[in-house]
Design a protein around this nucleic acid. Sequence first.
DNA 1: GTGGTGTATTAACCTATGTTAAGAACGCCG
DNA 2: CGGCGTTCTTAACATAGGTTAATACACCAC
Lengths: 252, 252
Amino acid sequence: MTLASHAFPAVQEAPVFRAGLDDCDKAYLGSLGFVLRRYPSHAVIARQGDEQDRIFVMHSGWGCICTELPDGERQILDFPLKGEIVASRPFEGEAAESFISQTELTAFEAPAKALLAGLARSPKFAAVLLGAIARQRAILVQHLTNLGRRSALIRTAHLLLELGTRLEMANAAKRFGFECPLTQYDLADALGLTAIHVNRMLRELRERGYLEFRHGAVHYLNRQGLECFAGFDPGYLRLPGESWGWSESPIP
Amino acid sequence: MTLASHAFPAVQEAPVFRAGLDDCDKAYLGSLGFVLRRYPSHAVIARQGDEQDRIFVMHSGWGCICTELPDGERQILDFPLKGEIVASRPFEGEAAESFISQTELTAFEAPAKALLAGLARSPKFAAVLLGAIARQRAILVQHLTNLGRRSALIRTAHLLLELGTRLEMANAAKRFGFECPLTQYDLADALGLTAIHVNRMLRELRERGYLEFRHGAVHYLNRQGLECFAGFDPGYLRLPGESWGWSESPIP
DNA sequence: GTGGTGTATTAACCTATGTTAAGAACGCCG
DNA sequence: CGGCGTTCTTAACATAGGTTAATACACCAC
């Protein structure tokens, strides 16, 4: 739309917005005041309990959304990936969750009020936003189901498959897997397990010939078998109004 | 607004809407085509996988939102209570969850599209809706944290305290507790436990002098102690823009 | 009354996961 | 190069929670 969109990454190209908006809405989006900011690793980008007035669109790096308990433990709710929205308390009130970077991370930021105004402006814009919120909710629901009703082994597999699929949807996956800078402690906090047990589960997945998680990368050894074993059905990751993936080579 | 609102319960009086909307918005709400419907107990009101085109506002009775796994197990995500919204996939796409009645249940229903249109109509209306969605998300997050990082005993206590507080907010609690027709199997499916273990935990809570769950009702024995023990902080249940509770006797 | 179904309760036993402890591998920095 | 912190890995042991099974209790149909 502008020269800047060639010189700098533009929020309009984020997967959340890319599919659903026409040029007019994208121009409007460009006017909302999104700024690309960079955070170092292990930075607290938004703290649980603070007034929540910004929303984020991930651009690079890894972070997590988590709740912190009085005893110092934490529960990771999700790892927002490239092109996904972070808007924990959509548009009002104090945040119930923290947003923390795991690696160096860049994200677009805008005042939440700007987006709220956009809801009234264009039905298409509203639909895209609500679609993104619905997808986030679906992901949260899967994580909840994971914790409540799946064994540690399947739970671990399910999360890794989900992350891989989401990265593919953002064109950020590798050929045989994906880069994943999470530590086993991070995974443990997301899976409701101990880091030691995560280690056991990763070994088990490797020994069963499903996948390998080493040197900050996940390599599938038998992806189809793993999806079957984990009961992974990626339907919940689809953004409404979007056909499957924007990869160059669509899966039949 | 109309004669009918005296003869029949009106959706405008539901807690979700009651606080935030002015008369004009309430009149609009009344025009959206909400219909009060009655379901028998153990009815499937919306099934996982079906196209989701209605939203509900609970009016009486108990139900649950759950996901069903291939192996026949289920994970209950939440128990929507009187005056709360049920809109699992807000406004589009197929439902990732089922909505099932536990007791006989009545709810207002309207086509989801009607609400979507309301977003553009009035900023206040949009804010109320988004507030309700945000609250639902906060509840989901607490349930997730419950499953991931709290012991079975505290988890059980936390859920019961939450339900009690939500019922109070809807003016639907008793003096010393609340009526709760859930079975121990229902609780187990919500807590990620076995019904047998739920039984053990309820006994433990009773023996410790915290609360009693018998004959379909929860009686607090030492509510303050229990809240402290469970680390229960009801802040996440507040609807944005709402002061604490609309009970006649506000808690200091 | 009798029987039947769903729920609650308890006990005995088993297993998945947590805990503690200790090395090993790797990167970073002097 | 050597030392130090972070992460990974494994083993031995402890326990929370699951499993199986049996009894008791309520409610309803007949």
